[in-house]
């Protein structure tokens, strides 16, 4: 009876019933499998988020992104006035989050790897690439860098999925991926 003290003074030495022993063994093996899946995927998987990050002042990051964008802007996105930036294949690309946009719009080549820089200029944002459904937490004052390799082409949305104030639900950016 779980609501009364155990009826024996020494209960630790009571033998354990067989189905419990079997279940514990199986569950423990499963726990090990799940644990080793993570390092295993680091070795063989294609989707591992790099943890490379630097402390950086928002102004400094903004300037970096703007200088870079000015260099590689190819056109404007429709009539939004937002530049579309197409950096050389395999180079560094930048994106910033601020109230309430992801800036700038990127144009990448399918199958190329890019060093992707990401940070926020104000509050925390949630970088959510759709319909791929890749989601990354973006902090102000920290620049994170990871390698991205688009494996499908088309138009991708970037929405914000960390609450960032009253315009949160209007925060949408875009990435175009073109075949070579």
């Amino acid at each position: 009876m779980g609501i009364f003290p155990p009826p024996q003074r020494v209960w630790w030495n009571q033998p354990i019933e067989k189905s419990e022993v079997m279940w514990i063994t199986i569950a423990f093996i499963w726990a090990l499998v799940m644990f080793f899946m993570m390092p295993y995927w680091h070795l063989v998987g294609e989707q591992n988020l790099s943890n490379e990050a630097y402390k950086i002042k928002p102004e400094v990051y903004a300037e970096k992104v703007e200088t870079w964008a000015a260099k590689y802007t190819v056109r404007e996105e429709g009539d939004t006035g937002i530049p579309v930036v197409r950096p050389p294949a395999g180079s560094d690309v930048y994106m910033l989050g601020r109230l309430w946009e992801w800036w700038p719009v990127l144009e990448l080549e399918k199958g190329q790897s890019y060093r992707f820089h990401l940070s926020s200029l104000d509050w925390m944002h949630g970088w959510s690439l759709l319909p791929e459904n890749i989601n990354i937490q973006v902090h102000p004052n920290y620049e994170m860098i990871f390698t991205v390799k688009p494996t499908s082409s088309g138009e991708f949305g970037v929405i914000c999925n960390e609450f960032c104030g009253i315009g949160h639900h209007t925060m949408v950016g875009k990435i175009h991926v073109v075949d070579k």
Partner: peptide, 24 residues
């Protein structure tokens, strides 16, 4: 969520945004 719908989000149609995105 498997389709990418965000949490804590008032408008998944993005009616008020410059660019928008269409969920299936």
């Amino acid at each position: 969520g498997t389709l990418g719908v965000p949490r804590r989000h008032w408008d998944m149609t993005f009616a008020d945004s410059a660019m928008g995105f269409d969920f299936p």
